[in-house]
Write a protein that binds this DNA or RNA. Structure first.
Lengths: 110, 110
DNA sequence: ATTATATATTCCCTCATTAGAATATTCGAA
DNA sequence: TTCGAATATTCTAATGAGGGAATATATAAT
C-alpha cells in the first residue's frame, strides 16, 4: 500500500503536473491546447500527461489524431483536501508573521 | 502555490516516509524507536524525518538528547483522503478483475 | 500516394534523490 | 572532564526524474 500511495504522490510532485490537474478540473484538454496554455513544449506535455495517466489520475479519449485528457472525478476530493490544508497553513503562517511584525513595532515603541 | 503543493507531495512520495507518517498517526516517536520499528538505519531515519519536518508535516520536541517527532494534526485529514481514494480505487479494480474472470469462465462454458 | 497535423517516444544531458558508511554534535551520567 | 547514548550531518556512489531536440507514429486532407 505504501508503495502505491508513494507512486501517486510522486506523480503529483511536480509543479507542471499540478498545473495540469488544475486545468483539468475545469474541462477536458487536448495535448496541444494544454501545451499552449501552460507554455511548455508538446513533448513535455505528452510526457507529463502520460505520468498522470499511468498513475490513474486522468483518462484519455482517443479522438482521431487527438487525445482528450480528463480528470478522474474521484481525484477531486483528495486533491482539494491538500489544497485546503495548504491554504489554511499559509493563512496561519501569515497571521503569525503579522503578529511578530506587530510585536516588533511595539518594541520600538512606534 | 503549485510549487508549495509539489514540495508537499514530494515529501510524501517515498514509501519509508509514508510508513513513518503511518506510525506517527498513533503516537510520538523518537528517531531510535522509529529506526528499530521500520528496520532502517538511524541516519536514514533522521534524514527522512528531516524531510517531513522541512515540509511542515511533523513537529519536533527536543527532549535532552532525544527528539520526539509527532504528526501535525492538520495533515491527518488530507492524508486520509488519499488513503480512502486509493482503497476505493483498488476495490474497484478488484471488482473489475473478478468480473472479467467471470466472463472468461462463461466463455469457456465451465 | 503524399502531405500536414497531432501526439508519442527516444536519446542525451543535467540535476535531484536515495542509501550506506563514516563522522560530528549534543547532552546526560559517572 | 571524560564517556556513552541519541541524533544529525557529510561524503560518495547509484539510481531516477525533468527538459530539449530529434524522430516516430497515426490520422485526416488533398
Amino acid at each position: 500500500m505504501e508503495e502505491k500511495l508513494a507512486s501517486l504522490f510522486q506523480a503529483l510532485a511536480d509543479p507542471n503536473r499540478l498545473r495540469m490537474m488544475e486545468l483539468l478540473r475545469k474541462q477536458e484538454w487536448t495535448v496541444g491546447m494544454m501545451a499552449t496554455q501552460l507554455e511548455i513544449s508538446q513533448p513535455q506535455t505528452s510526457k507529463h500527461l502520460r505520468i498522470l495517466h499511468d498513475a490513474g489520475l486522468v483518462t484519455v479519449t482517443i479522438d482521431a489524431n487527438r487525445r482528450r485528457y480528463a480528470l478522474k472525478s474521484q481525484v477531486v476530493e483528495p486533491l482539494d483536501a491538500w489544497r485546503t490544508y495548504l491554504a489554511r497553513e499559509t493563512a496561519r503562517l501569515d497571521r503569525l508573521e503579522n503578529f511578530l511584525a506587530e510585536s516588533q513595532r511595539e518594541e520600538n515603541g512606534s
